[in-house]
Design a protein around this nucleic acid. Structure first.
Lengths: 163, 163
DNA sequence: CACCAATGATTGGTGCACAAACCATTGGTA
DNA sequence: TACCAATGGTTTGTGCACCAATCATTGGTG
């Protein structure tokens, strides 16, 4: 038996859908909770797809950035991916030891680290090409809705960027 | 100077808005990227608000769950928050040493851990009451749009739950 | 009653994520 | 030219997040 009355009866909610959300501190009322859970859920879809390629999702994002444009400095990647340099530093070392990227100081400015793709790294793009469609298929949501979510999220990012 | 041509000219994009997204591997085309960045951005809004209360966002979510209903077992929290028990276990110990919750085995079933609020934990709810409004204000997005994002995210969660 | 598969939680390992401290290089400027 | 603030990365420390392995308790079943 369970420890508590019943997880699905906050007080007198009519049904599964959260209509009134009278309590601002109710878990179902938290947009950020939905945001975090959605992110984790979708990452969970990527995981088994990326794992055979030897990539985590953050690493995949770095590769996407480099496939679009290389070389890039840590600072470039940091601003493109909105990630802390302190996060990228070890991540890039792992990509290097996986043989996907090279890390060398820029000759013109020794402060900059020039991150570039290896042949193997370039090659991997062919395999990655099928990922987006695979994820969309697994998610099983109509493309129009996905697009809507995307633009909505961009608004959230823009709004949060102001604050 | 920079290492690369220019971060803002993938090839011939008209302007800031991403219209065609011809390349499925383009960073701007990745919904999951937007999802992850949005989540991180909004968490960044919560951080300075929660920090003076001594809470991280995951800890805040656990408190929200307990304020709605207590006691809860680790399993209950795990299913409510969609979090691994292995993640919750040390998190709950930190909440315990912060004096906000108690952790004791259930008397009826020694396998279950009964997580309950302390007086201090109950008390904290008063302070937390102002958080949602504060976050919404900082985000500066109209409430209707926020609601829309919320329902859209619930759809994503539901879709990802199938897969 | 004695075993045993299932359940619930903890532990250990890897990899983000962020903040703060630190370090090297650079490009002014006194 | 000799200093010095700014810039770009790395390191360290804390806290998720997930997985796999482990362990104790429980509730059947032979």
């Amino acid at each position: 038996m369970d420890l508590m009355p019943a997880p699905d009866s906050p007080s007198a909610a009519p049904h599964g859908t959260t209509l009134p959300a009278e309590d601002p501190l109710a878990l179902e009322a938290q947009v950020c909770f939905a945001l975090v859970v959605a992110a984790r859920s979708v990452l969970g879809i990527y995981r088994p797809i990326l794992e055979p390629m030897g990539l985590t999702h953050p690493q995949y994002l770095v590769m996407l950035a480099l496939w679009q444009q290389a070389p890039l400095s840590v600072k470039d990647l940091s601003s493109l991916l909105q990630l802390d340099p302190g996060t990228l530093s070890p991540l890039l070392k792992r990509l290097e030891s996986a043989g996907l990227v090279t890390r060398e100081r820029s000759t013109s400015d020794e402060r900059l680290l020039s991150v570039n793709l290896t042949a193997k790294g370039v090659e991997l793009r062919n395999e990655a090409a099928k990922i987006p469609a695979e994820v969309v298929a697994k998610l099983g949501m109509p493309l129009t809705e996905i697009k809507q979510v995307h633009t909505a999220l961009l608004q959230v990012i823009a709004a949060a960027g102001q604050a």
